[in-house]
Amino acid sequence: MTYRIVALEGVDGSGKSTLLESLHTSLSAHSKVVRARPARALSNAFRRIAEDGRPENLYQDALPAPFRHSAYLLESAVQFRYEQHRFEQADFVLFDRWRHTWAVYCEDVVEHGDWFARIEALLPRPDVLFWLRVDPELAYERLVARQDRWVEAYSPAGLRAKITRLCERYEEVMRDSGAVVLDGTGPASEVRAEALAVLAAQPAASVG
């Protein structure tokens, strides 16, 4: 590939969107940068099908998790075909989430698991995988502060429990992922600076 894949992982409320935006701005000063998401089309489709415009109806709770996991794998595999021309025009492709998200938020694919494992093996490896690590309470506070749609869908206790489970799952999934761990509790400017320093230490495209 002529471009470098930089993927960001972390629980909702970890600061991924803020970091993605700031990296895009910084890198774009010297490089061609494209933003992407592994399975955006299906996530949007699932939302339209299951939620019907009602924020309390989350598609994640309505559609079977193994089905979503397998569908996301399929879209991600073909994405590098139908987006190939756009990606190849870039120096960096910044991915908001990567396949680890599905291991955290979805159950394992059981039916035809061997075949889906082969599909997953076709996905390229990110040149740099960042994991924004935060404690559950901070993630919860950030979701409440920005009035995230989850706040409407869950009670405070229910949302705290959900975020806690997801953070625990991230600890398991990311343990041997080779990810660069970023302290998501720090100021956004410091997180950005640390991420840029990691990218600057890598060979290839210019980093600003």
Rank of each mutant, 00 (worst) to 15 (best):
residue 27 L to P: 10
residue 142 R to K: 12
residue 171 E to Q: 14
residue 135 D to N: 13
residue 31 S to V: 04
residue 97 R to C: 09
residue 45 A to K: 04
residue 10 G to F: 06
residue 138 L to Q: 15
residue 182 L to Y: 10
residue 64 P to D: 14
residue 99 R to M: 12
residue 130 F to T: 08
residue 165 R to H: 08
residue 183 D to S: 08
residue 172 E to C: 03
residue 13 G to E: 13
residue 119 I to K: 06
residue 111 E to Y: 06
residue 1 M to W: 03
residue 126 P to T: 08
residue 159 L to S: 06
residue 67 F to H: 05
residue 207 V to G: 08
residue 168 E to S: 12
residue 176 D to A: 09
residue 156 P to D: 09
residue 190 E to G: 10
residue 48 R to A: 13
residue 204 A to I: 01
residue 180 V to K: 10
residue 169 R to P: 03
residue 62 A to E: 11
residue 99 R to Y: 06
residue 104 V to L: 02
residue 156 P to G: 06
residue 181 V to F: 10
residue 196 L to A: 10
residue 96 D to S: 09
residue 17 S to D: 15
residue 160 R to M: 12
residue 73 L to R: 05
residue 147 Q to G: 09
residue 68 R to W: 00
residue 142 R to C: 13
residue 206 S to P: 09
residue 160 R to C: 07
residue 116 F to H: 12
residue 30 H to N: 07
residue 31 S to H: 06
residue 148 D to N: 14
residue 32 K to P: 03
residue 60 Q to W: 12
residue 194 E to L: 08
residue 110 V to A: 09
residue 94 L to V: 12
residue 97 R to V: 09
residue 67 F to M: 12
residue 13 G to C: 10
residue 82 Y to F: 15
residue 94 L to E: 07
residue 206 S to I: 09
residue 78 V to H: 03
residue 136 P to Q: 07
residue 195 A to R: 09
residue 28 S to W: 05
residue 134 V to H: 04
residue 173 V to M: 02
residue 41 A to K: 13
residue 185 T to K: 09
residue 167 C to L: 02
residue 70 S to C: 04
residue 92 F to C: 07
residue 88 E to Q: 15
residue 148 D to T: 06
residue 194 E to Y: 04
residue 67 F to L: 15
residue 156 P to W: 00
residue 118 R to G: 13
residue 203 P to M: 05
residue 71 A to D: 05
residue 58 L to N: 02
residue 42 L to N: 05
residue 3 Y to S: 06
residue 208 G to Q: 11
residue 73 L to P: 00
residue 103 A to R: 13
residue 96 D to Y: 06
residue 203 P to T: 13
residue 181 V to I: 15
residue 131 W to E: 07
residue 88 E to C: 11
residue 128 V to C: 13
residue 206 S to G: 12
residue 163 I to M: 04
residue 130 F to K: 10
residue 147 Q to F: 00
residue 1 M to G: 14
residue 121 A to F: 01
residue 8 L to E: 06
residue 205 A to F: 15
residue 161 A to N: 10
residue 132 L to G: 12
residue 46 F to G: 00
residue 23 L to M: 07
residue 48 R to C: 01
residue 161 A to T: 11
residue 42 L to F: 11
residue 157 A to G: 01
residue 4 R to F: 02
residue 85 H to K: 14
residue 113 G to P: 01
residue 177 S to R: 04
residue 199 L to I: 08
residue 133 R to A: 12
residue 208 G to N: 14
residue 138 L to N: 08
residue 29 A to I: 04
residue 99 R to F: 08
residue 121 A to S: 15
residue 195 A to Y: 11
residue 54 R to C: 01
residue 66 P to S: 07
residue 117 A to H: 08
residue 200 A to W: 01
residue 14 S to T: 12
residue 114 D to R: 11
residue 72 Y to S: 11
residue 19 L to V: 11
residue 31 S to F: 03
residue 151 V to S: 06
residue 30 H to G: 05
residue 203 P to G: 09
residue 82 Y to W: 15
residue 31 S to D: 05
residue 89 Q to R: 15
residue 185 T to I: 00
residue 12 D to C: 05
residue 96 D to V: 06
residue 10 G to L: 09
residue 51 E to H: 00
residue 177 S to W: 03
residue 182 L to P: 10
residue 73 L to C: 07
residue 142 R to T: 13
residue 133 R to D: 15
residue 166 L to Y: 09
residue 149 R to P: 00
residue 186 G to E: 13
residue 160 R to V: 08
residue 115 W to C: 04
residue 162 K to G: 01
